[in-house]
Each structure stands twice: as C-alpha cells, then as structure tokens.
Design a protein around this nucleic acid. Structure first.
Lengths: 352, 352
DNA sequence: CTGAAAGCGCTAACAT
DNA sequence: ATGTTAGCGCTTTCAG
C-alpha cells in the first residue's frame, strides 16, 4: 500500500483547489453541486475515504475523544455491573454527539502520573467514573495537561463537576424500612473503603481513613435513620465472592444480626449465599438488602430488596456535563434520585 | 483559561529554538544536559504539560488509538463476561505498547457506514471482537478508510487476520465426554445465530442462515464427535435469562434429554435454573455443560462442566496482531487452545 | 550541540 | 463559487 491519498490528491484529480475539495466534504460553505460531485467522484476514484481525522483534529484542536478512567484493572470495573451500565449509558449518549470513549486503565501505581495513555492520548475531556479517590495521581496528571475532568462519583469540593446519586437518602430509606419491619440488630457490609483491599471488621481507626465517597455517604444515610449497626464489615471488592466472605464473618457467630445491609447488590447476593451455607433462611432467619437495583436473574425466584440507582441516566448526565464543558460552560453538580425497591429478601425479624 | 501554551512558548521562554525544545522532550537527539534542564524548567514555569498529542499525531500519522467494535449495545457486550475478559486482556496488552482502546459501539443499524465514530475517529487499527458478521457495514467502512482490521472471532477467508479459539475441538471433547458417560439423548442450546434475536428451536432452514462463526464451529464439533442432538434451541442472547428460557423449551417436555450442552456458560447456568424449576436434579436427572470456563461463584457449591478458553491470552494475541500490522507485517491467523473442565454438573444419565 | 525551514493533512479567512 | 494564503503544534532533516 502506498502513501495514503490526501485531500490534495483528490483536489488535483478533480482539477480544483484543496479548499474547494475540503468544502465538498464538510459541506460548510458555498459550493456548486457540479464541482462537489466532481470532487466526490475523484475521491471514489482514488479510494479516498474522507478527510483524515488527524488533520481535522489538529486544525480544530479537538480529537472527539473522551477518556474514561476506570479503577485499576479493567477486569474489576467490568465485573461490576454498575460500572458497565453507567459506561453503556455514557458511550450511548456520547456517540451521537460525535464523541468516543477511550478506556484509560488506571494502573494504580504511583507512576500513573507518567502513564503513557494519560500522558499522551489526545483527550478532549476525561471522566473518572468510579474509584475517584480524593487524591489520585491520574487526576493530577489530567489537570496538569489542562484536560477538563468530570467525576462520576462523590468527592465534591475538588472544584470538579460531579454526577452523583442520592446514596445517603437511599440508604436512609432502606434502613427505615428495616427498622419499620422491627429489626434492631442490623449489620452492614461496606464497599472497599480505599487503600489496601481486605475483608475485615471496620473499627473507628479504619472509619477515619475512608476514601470512597459512596461508602461514606451510605454509612451517613444509616446514621440519618438513627441506626447504629451491630457490626460493620468491609468487603474486599464489590463481588459475590467478597459478599460471601463478609457474610460468613457476620453470620457465623453466636448471636447473628437479624438483617444485613450491604452497599452493593453483588455483595448482598454473596451474603445470601453465605446465609444459606450456614443453614439460615432468607428472609425468615435473616433479611438481606443491597444497593444498586440490579437484575440478578440467578437469584430467582428471589428478588433482592435494594435501592435502585439510575444507571443509564447517570451515564447520560455525565455525557451532558462533558458536552457542556466542551462548549465552554461551567455545569453545576448533579445528584440523581434513587428509589427503594422492595423484594423478597427482607421481612420481619425472627420472633425469637 | 487562555490559549494553551505551546512548545513554541516554552522555547521562547527558555531562549532556545522550537526544535531544540522538542528534543528536550522527546530525548531523541543530541542535546546538552544544561539546555534540556533549562527547557524543562521553562515548561514547568509555564505549566506546559508536554507536547500535544494532536501535533505529534499529525506528524507521525499515528494516533495510538485502536478502535474496538463491540456488537450492538455496549450493554450486551459488557454483560457478557467473555467479552469483558478478552477486552481486559486486550487493553492490558495494548497499554504498554502505547496504544489505547476506543470503544466503538456498533449501532446495528444499516447506517453504520456513516457512524460518526467509525467514520471520523483517528484510529490506527480496529478490532472486531465479537459478533463479526461476514458482511458488516462497519467492516466495510473501516476498510474503506484504510484502517487495518483484526478479527477476534472466526470468519476466516475475508483476508483479515483472525484470532480464534479451538471452538470445534473443544466442543468435540465435551461431546465425547458426555457420550462416554453414556448419554444418548443430548440437546443443544446455541448462541444467537445472527439476524433477529429469538428463542426458538433451530430447524434446517435456520441452520442454513447461521452467521455466527463460534456457534457454527461449535455445532461442527458436535458432529465431529458423531453426535446427533435430539433437539437444538437457539438462545436470544448469551445470558442467564435466555438460558432459562431455552432450558424450559428443552426440558419441559414429556421425554427430556439426559444432557444439555450449551454454547456458553451463562446459558448453561440458565438451563440449570430451568431444570431446578422443573424439579430436575443436576446432574442426577439431567447433565448440563457450558462453554467458556467462567467462574460462576453464585453457582456454588456446583462447578459447571465446561470448555475453558483462554480469555487473557486471546486479548493478548489480538494485541500482538495489531502491533504486528502496525509494524507493517502480515500476521498469520492464530487459533488458541481450549481445555475441558470437568465440574459437578455432568454425570451418568439417569438409569431409567 | 543548536537553529532554520519544511512540511504532516486539513480548515478558515480572505481575496478573487 | 472558487482559489490563495496562512497556519493548527509538532518533528525532522539539514546546515551551521
């Protein structure tokens, strides 16, 4: 294959100037139907597939690419149905606006600052969907490059626009529901709180270190409902297995809680599995509730009691924010509403 | 924010020429430590974050971006753990080579030819990971733009390099396993065969329309083992729910098969759920096997009998192929090995 | 070791 | 309606 054919070649072949040829493609400007046709014909002839993105980019200063930074491994983000749904909404809303999504895996290393992608990819904007720690080397690198950043998660006060969901209120609603059912011994399984991943009871020291806004907000919601959990365990990840681990810790004791609230649906599913392993019926012996509102078909015939968050809307909100920023506006933070979803996994506590 | 600082600004501030400044950043070329330092200092001073990707791209003719086309909705691809794992492997291998992954959702419409992303994104190469139909409008558009394409799935003979897995052999191994266990009435649940999505028995007419290489190869493998399935049902998607639907069709009959082979693990999980619903024990009453070799923690304590395919290796192989092509080579097709994984969901057929 | 100059492919004023 | 002329920000010969 020889060198790519360029607009100049086409122009020459059509016997017009480059700028005229340009107009034939962009359509932005006055051009006679005849010449346009001629140029297009010449293009087809030469196998020219339209203006090069690179040239256009340089000229316009825009690449049409939005970087989406996803916590450490892609694997981990993609195993989380929540990220996937939001990402889907984001890509779906960005596409029609002519913007594409570039995956930027955050290695998690300290040298993210020098990550080749973060450092050199031609990004118009970047989105930190999840796992946006308050101080991330990536964030620093992006800001240093002058790339506008939108956060898809809670840490406000960084001067960056944020799209969040009503974590706090949702948790409060759920907690009140359990309280109204008569539960007094409620345990909690949190998302990873930041730093090293582990499955362990959370003590005040650990609580002070939290660097995971959703986890924090959801704990706050609990307090809003006036509930003091009898135990709090941090999960190693938002995965079924991690939920099972946490569930064992909470339930395999002399005097187990009558209800377990988890900070994600996958964790809740894991807790349910742990409960069954231990011979506990859900919800007769122990109620289990999640957060997210996922469809978990393999839980059938059960339906998990949970707090539904609007995935697609979140992606869309982020997309709108990005568009606004690129248009030079300064969008205000958004908080999306959640909804309590009552399923079959919560009920009154055992008479005992 | 004023106009971005450019290399020229930095050069001016450092009192050197642009070309020298360029050298200070690229390191490719002779430059005195002193000048280099001076330039870098000036850069920091001005808040210059290194050469702009756009300029570099135009100059080098490379954007460092690989488009990954994912079947219709992101959602669907991302709900499929297989895609996700492969994508993870791909991104992981591409990253260190300085290449990023741009998600290109195929709308599935006929006008994909004019999809803004496909048409204008600055791609160095593209990968069709899954759902590469033999004639895709996207494929045409990409080739027309002169963008090299790598296929992550079977349709050979398009003149495009392909990374495949040993679908056929894997299925044969699995089928032989079931035959050796004594099964004679084996049913099959296939992946969507292309075209409209439906859950329905597959007749010869439909068989002739297949446009889904993995499904086709896996059916071939069955034949290689000399097995004639008693029934074949096409699933509407590779999802648990779809498997449950298909399972009901196959098992809720007077004389159900003694074993069900599905073309994906999620489908197998769905069939298991359907079986349980119908009061059939697995594997005592019916054996169920999948394909993929996923971890399905919520199936615990069962382990699905399946054919493990090497996800990460596949992504890596695709990455290598892309790299080779960008280096001007013409890589040969790759077929990755699979492995039979015996779990607890298959056993001898009921005595009957 | 450093500077000057010529583009990469395209678009947008401006002039014709 | 079309052509001319400058660049966008950078890299890279090629001289000095």
């Amino acid at each position: 294959m020889t060198d790519r054919t360029t607009l100049a070649d086409v122009a020459a072949a059509a016997g017009v100037s480059v700028s005229t040829a340009s107009l034939a493609f962009s359509g932005a400007g006055p051009i006679s139907a005849a010449t346009k046709e001629r140029v297009l014909a010449a293009a087809t002839e030469l196998g020219y597939a339209g203006p090069s993105a690179l040239g256009r980019s340089l000229r316009s200063g825009r690449s049409g690419i939005v970087g989406v930074v996803i916590g450490d491994q892609l694997r981990r983000s993609f195993r989380d149905p929540v990220s996937v749904r939001v990402l889907d909404g984001l890509a779906g809303s960005l596409g029609p606006r002519g913007l594409g999504v570039l995956l930027v895996p955050a290695t998690g290393d300290e040298d993210d600052e020098n990550d080749p992608l973060v450092a050199t990819a031609p990004l118009d904007a970047a989105v930190l969907l999840f796992g946006a720690r308050r101080s991330s080397p990536i964030l620093g690198a992006l800001q240093h490059r002058g790339i506008p950043v939108v956060l898809g998660e809670g840490p406000t006060g960084l001067g960056l626009p944020v799209v969040g969901v009503a974590d706090r209120q949702g948790t409060r609603l759920l907690a009140e529901h359990l309280r109204d059912l008569g539960h007094e011994r409620i345990a909690v399984v949190t998302l990873p709180l930041g730093g090293a991943r582990r499955c362990a009871p959370v003590d005040p020291t650990r609580l002070a270190e939290i660097d995971c806004p959703p986890a924090e907000h959801r704990l706050d919601g609990l307090r809003d409902a006036g509930i003091e959990p009898v135990a709090v365990v941090e999960a190693a990840a938002s995965l079924v297995e991690a939920g099972t681990d946490a569930g064992r810790v909470l339930l395999d004791v002399a005097d187990p809680p009558t209800a377990v609230m988890t900070q994600s649906d996958l964790l809740a599913a894991g807790v349910i599995i742990a409960a069954r392993e231990l011979g506990l019926r859900v919800p007769e012996d122990v109620s289990v509730a999640g957060f997210d509102g996922l469809d978990l078909p393999w839980l059938a015939p059960d339906v998990l009691t949970s707090v539904s968050q609007p995935f697609a809307a979140k992606g869309q909100a982020v997309a709108e924010m990005v568009t606004a920023i690129l248009a030079g506006e300064q969008p205000a933070d958004v908080e999306l509403p959640v909804e309590l979803r009552l399923g079959t996994t919560t009920g009154p506590p055992p008479a005992a």
